[in-house]
Nucleic acid binder design. Structure first.
Length: 369
RNA sequence: GCCUCAAUAGCUCAGUCGGUUAGAGCACUUGACUGUUAAUCAAGGGGUCGUAGGUCCGAGUCCUACUUGGGGCG
């Protein structure tokens, strides 16, 4: 079945909304945070650990799985869920972000994008149709349209052409999409140009997708600009479909996104920061490599209900991180993912209690002091 | 006892024919990270060049002695 968005409660002071997203693998509350598992795994974690973090939907990536092991291998395995042993909802990104991240190894044409494989330099050609066909075979629950995520900044002229092309790509992808149980989301682009954001949103909605995402943010612009990018398009997205802010997962950005009406977030930040020795706390993020934690025998955060905080100290985790032990990144990944998911749980509760603004201000005050 | 090789950053080592402010890797101390090319990247601190003399305009570099360590011969 296609995902369905059920609106439960709108916040009275902001554009935030609490809802339920119905999927093939159950119903989940929104706003939600989705951990990223690019190569069919959330780095260093097993399913049970993700579930213990109350993780719902996770992400995987079309471009990377296309290269290795190939969509046919995963199709033969019985689809991505069976292949990676995850019986929760999976969203696959289209490869659109790789149009941005593989900047020096690509060539954008109307037909599609020529990539030079980051693995061996091999010339690859990914089109909107191919991206959707690969995602059909991967059998994820939510597929993303193949878009261009332009760098920042680009000229208005470039962005205008890019937005038009992304719209044509969205239609082409939708036309070949043929997996009945898989939903397809459209992506709004337009950079920092308000009228292009508006146009991109309106035209994308006309194509009638199962959900809509806001792309092209957090690519180097300042936070004020990023929040404006959301403001400039979100009011043109329908109320009865999920809204997904792609690639955003800084705790402060999640709060800003939620109060602007966003339902879904994803980000590599909790797992990457973890592997780099950092932990989220309500008083900001901390770097476990710092000397001050050498003999700190307290948990990462007092009162945190994650496995890591219930069992280990900062001193021990610092030791692991310092010695480059994999377990350090694992324990920090568990904590960081739980931290962001707990943040969304608290946000949902605040919406229910109608004190989201108060919660937001208090969180920011603590986090940035 | 004799011969020989070595001694440069916390560690392992570069250092040209004697010539500008003696470098690297690791370690250490920090910072960055937003739809993962990232368990990565960047910055910083750290030196009586074993010690004492000598030659020279100039010595980590050449000479002498000593100290410590390795190897060899007695």
């Amino acid at each position: 079945m296609k995902v369905k968005y059920e609106l439960v409660k709108k916040d009275s002071q902001t554009l935030a909304r609490r809802g339920i997203i119905h999927t093939n693998y159950g119903n989940y509350a929104t706003p939600m945070f989705m951990p990223v598992g690019t190569l069919a795994n959330v780095k260093t974690l097993v399913k049970e650990e993700l579930l213990a973090c109350h993780s719902a939907i996770i992400l995987s990536n079309t471009y990377h799985l296309w290269l290795r092991p190939g969509e046919n291998v995963i199709n033969k395995a019985g689809g991505l869920h069976k292949f990676m042993n995850y019986d929760g909802p999976i969203l696959t990104d289209s490869g659109g972000f790789q149009v941005f991240s593989l900047a020096l190894k690509k060539d954008i044409l109307e037909e599609g994008v020529i990539f030079k494989s980051h693995l061996n330099g091999e010339r690859l050609f990914l089109t909107p149709e191919l991206s959707i066909q690969i995602q059909n075979k991967l059998d994820s629950d939510i597929a993303m349209s193949f878009d261009e995520c332009p760098p920042y900044p680009v000229t208005r002229e470039y962005m205008e052409k890019s937005v038009e092309r992304t719209l044509r790509w969205a239609k082409r992808g939708k036309d070949v999409h043929c997996n009945e149980r898989q939903s397809l989301f459209g992506i709004v682009q337009g950079g920092e140009f308000a009228d292009l954001r508006k146009k991109s949103a309106i035209e994308t909605v006309k194509l009638d997708f199962d959900g809509y995402s806001i792309g092209g943010t957090s690519v180097g612009e300042d936070k004020k600009t990023m929040y404006k990018m959301i403001d400039d398009c979100i009011s043109y997205l329908p109320e009865d479909k999920p809204r997904y802010l792609m690639g955003v997962g800084d705790p402060l950005d999640i709060l800003e996104g939620v109060t602007r009406g966003v339902d879904m977030f994803d980000c590599v930040m909790p797992t990457r920061l973890a592997r780099h020795g950092n932990a989220f706390t309500h008083c900001g993020k901390i770097n476990l490599k710092n000397l001050q934690f050498k003999e700190d025998f307290t948990p990462l955060e007092d009162g945190c209900d994650c496995y890591t905080c219930k069992n280990y100290t900062k001193s021990y985790i610092r030791h692991l991180v310092t010695c480059d032990e994999t377990l350090g990144g694992r324990l920090l990944s568990i904590h960081n993912i739980r931290f962001l998911i707990k943040l969304t749980e608290d946000i949902r509760e605040a919406i229910s209690k109608d004190n989201l603004l108060e919660f937001k201000e208090s969180f920011i005050k603590n986090y940035t002091k």
